[in-house]
């Protein structure tokens, strides 16, 4: 179950999206995320979906791989959907029974939120799948560099994020291993109510944390052994530079954003 989490994994390749400058990719992903929140109708969502699909196709990463990455947030999507469905009001009443009160406005918000969530994760997945953690960090660091004026630790934060991404698959594997080990000793992770299952996680999390700390210790030592001294005086093998691909990418997202804004202005649903 845990091997299915693809968020934060890099999928090596040489597509146009892979070759784009990390800075541009981050900016465009942020733009896309804003687009997802700005857009208010099914046409808008359809446009964004088509765009994301198109980008996914050009990366040559199999769609089933990307869809698998959505599984972990499916629960959250359903949860938000239900929550919005019952909590939001407005529009005409569709269904009423005792205290349950579903309105068309609530239904719409619920559907929108679920779609938004799924689009958000898919879009950010495309970023991490096509960008190696180091160039992602490079991009973030470059984008945050102006903040150094206010003593913002851009390099440190970028390094922390990159290491977190690097260790996701390792810790996933480890969790699987510990789970199997505990199962072999009769631990039960699957049955019982939520509280019971949460309790069953304790013997899983304790060894996982212990090992994560040990790994952190080892890694710090290994980094130091390889002359790591923080961001000062560091060079990079892969220099970031914008190419034509970045221009086309920016144009595509700009076009999409323009279309969405127009849709909003027209008030289309």
């Amino acid at each position: 179950m845990l091997k299915n989490i693809t968020i934060g994994q890099y999928f090596p390749g040489n597509s146009a999206v892979h070759r784009m400058d990390a800075r541009m990719k981050i900016l465009l992903t942020i733009a896309l995320l804003v687009d997802v929140f700005v857009s208010k109708g099914f046409i808008g969502f359809g446009l964004i979906f088509a765009f994301v699909l198109l980008v996914a196709r050009t990366t040559k990463i199999s769609l089933s791989f990307i869809v698998r990455g959505l599984k972990p947030i499916a629960f959250i999507a359903v949860f938000t959907f239900v929550l919005n469905l019952f909590m939001q009001t407005g529009g005409e009443t569709l269904f009423q029974w005792k205290f349950i009160h579903i309105t068309s406005g609530g239904l719409r918000t619920a559907v929108y939120m679920a779609i938004r969530l799924l689009l958000l994760v898919t879009a950010s997945q495309l970023l991490t799948l096509t960008t190696s953690s180091l160039s992602l960090t490079d991009g973030l660091e470059a984008l945050m560099r102006p903040l150094a004026v206010i003593h913002f630790p851009a390099h440190e934060i970028a390094m922390m994020m990159s290491i977190a991404l690097r260790f996701i698959p390792t810790l996933m594997e480890e969790t699987d291993k510990i789970m199997n080990a505990q199962k072999a000793r009769g631990a039960d992770f699957e049955s019982g109510n939520l509280i019971r299952r949460a309790k069953a996680m304790v013997p899983l999390l304790v060894p996982l944390f212990v090992s994560a700390f040990r790994r952190a210790d080892d890694l710090a030592l290994a980094m130091e052994a390889r002359c790591y001294r923080g961001g000062k005086g560091r060079t990079r093998m892969n220099q970031l530079h914008m190419t034509k691909v970045d221009l086309y990418g920016a144009l595509a997202v700009a076009l999409l954003t323009a279309a969405l804004v127009t849709l909003n202005l027209l008030g289309a649903v």
């Binding site: 890099y10 180091l134 290491i163 390792t170 040990r214 790994r215 290994a222």
Partner: peptide
């Protein structure tokens, strides 16, 4: 595993 820094 504990001495590799990057994902590539």
């Amino acid at each position: 595993d504990n001495q590799i820094v990057s994902t590539i």
